[in-house]
Computed example of a mutant assay.
Amino acid sequence: MTLGTTALVTGAARGLGRSIAEHLAGQGASVAVLGRTAESLEPVLAAIRATGARGIAVVADVTDLSAVTAAVADAEAALGPLDLVVNNAGLIDDSEVPFWETDPDRWWAVVETNLRGPANIDRAVIPGMLARGRGRIVNINSGFALRTDPNYSAYSTSKAALLRLSDAMAGPLAERGVYLFDVSPGAVATDMTAGMAMFEGKSDWYDKQRILAAVTAVAEGKVDTLAGRFLHAGKDDIVKLAAERADDIAERDARRLHLRPYGDDDPEG
Rank of each mutant, 00 (worst) to 15 (best):
M1S: 15
T2E: 15
T2S: 14
T2P: 10
A12I: 03
A12E: 10
G15Y: 03
L16P: 04
S19E: 12
I20C: 11
I20S: 12
I20P: 07
G26N: 08
Q27G: 08
Q27W: 01
G28Q: 04
S30T: 06
V31Y: 05
V31N: 04
L45M: 12
I48W: 10
A50M: 05
T51G: 12
G52V: 00
R54I: 03
V59N: 14
D61N: 13
T69M: 11
A73D: 15
A78L: 02
G80C: 07
L82T: 12
D83E: 09
D83I: 00
D83K: 02
V85E: 08
A89M: 09
G90I: 02
L91F: 04
D93G: 05
D93E: 06
S95F: 10
E96Q: 14
F99R: 00
W100K: 06
V111H: 00
T113V: 11
L115G: 05
P118H: 08
A124T: 00
I126S: 14
M129Y: 08
M129I: 08
L130D: 08
A131G: 14
A131V: 07
A131R: 15
G135F: 09
G135R: 09
N141Q: 00
P150Y: 06
N151C: 08
Y152K: 00
S156C: 06
S158R: 00
K159P: 00
A160Q: 02
A161P: 08
A161C: 13
R164M: 13
D167C: 03
L173G: 06
Y179L: 05
A187Q: 11
T193P: 02
F199D: 05
E200P: 02
K202Q: 15
D204R: 02
I211Y: 04
A213K: 10
A217Y: 07
T225A: 15
L226G: 10
A227T: 14
F230P: 00
V239P: 09
D247G: 02
E251D: 13
E251R: 12
R256L: 11
L257H: 11
R260C: 14
R260K: 15
P261F: 05
D264C: 00
D265C: 06
P267M: 13
E268K: 03
E268P: 00
